Amino acid sequence: MSAWLPSLITATPEEGYDLAIKLSRMAVKKTQGSDEVRARLRAIYENDAQALVAVSHVVAVNFATVAAANGYWR
């Protein structure tokens, strides 16, 4: 198991959502390994409504994955 992702199992939906955000952030970090480049790009996309909507979509997909892994907390 990876040190940063021991499990997709969470106690609550809120924890699951936080995990979905972390999954999304780690995907960016692993695909763009340069802290400097990520910081430079962040200044561009943080003011771009379409980019922010795209980020929301990625988080939503990851949240759906986490929710399924947790049996939708039922």
Rank of each mutant, 00 (worst) to 15 (best):
I21A: 03
A11Q: 03
A27Q: 12
S2I: 11
G33S: 02
E14G: 07
D48H: 02
N62G: 12
A43M: 12
A3W: 02
V55Y: 14
D18V: 00
T31A: 14
V66M: 04
V37K: 02
K29C: 14
D48N: 08
W73M: 11
G16D: 01
Y45M: 01
E46L: 01
I44V: 06
K22G: 05
V28S: 15
L41A: 11
L52F: 07
S7Q: 13
Y72F: 10
S24L: 12
Y72V: 11
Q32T: 10
Y17V: 08
L19K: 01
D18L: 11
L5G: 05
V66Y: 01
G71E: 10
S34A: 10
A11H: 03
E14V: 05
G16A: 04
T10A: 00
V28R: 11
N47G: 15
V66Q: 02
P13V: 05
A3H: 06
A43T: 10
S56P: 09
A43C: 02
N70F: 08
L41F: 07
A27I: 14
G33D: 09
S34D: 08
D48M: 12
Y72Q: 08
K22C: 08
V59T: 14
E15P: 11
V61I: 13
T10F: 05
D35S: 13
L23T: 07
P13T: 02
A69G: 11
G16K: 00
V37Y: 02
Q32M: 13
A49M: 02
M26F: 10
V61F: 09
W73L: 14
S34H: 07
A3I: 14
W4Y: 01
R40A: 01
G71T: 09
V28W: 14
I44H: 00
D48L: 09
A39E: 06
L41P: 02
Q50S: 08
D18K: 01
L5T: 10
S2C: 06
I9H: 05
S56G: 15
A11P: 01
V53P: 11
V37T: 02
P13G: 01
A49V: 12
D48A: 09
D18H: 05
R38S: 03
V61E: 09
D35A: 06
L52T: 01
F63D: 12
E36K: 14
V53A: 11
V37W: 03
P6Q: 01
L41G: 04
W4V: 15
P6W: 03
I9Y: 08
T31F: 10
P13H: 00
V59N: 11
L19T: 06
G71F: 02
K22H: 04
T31Q: 10
V59D: 00
P6E: 08
R38P: 00
A27S: 11
A69W: 02
V59A: 09
Q50H: 09
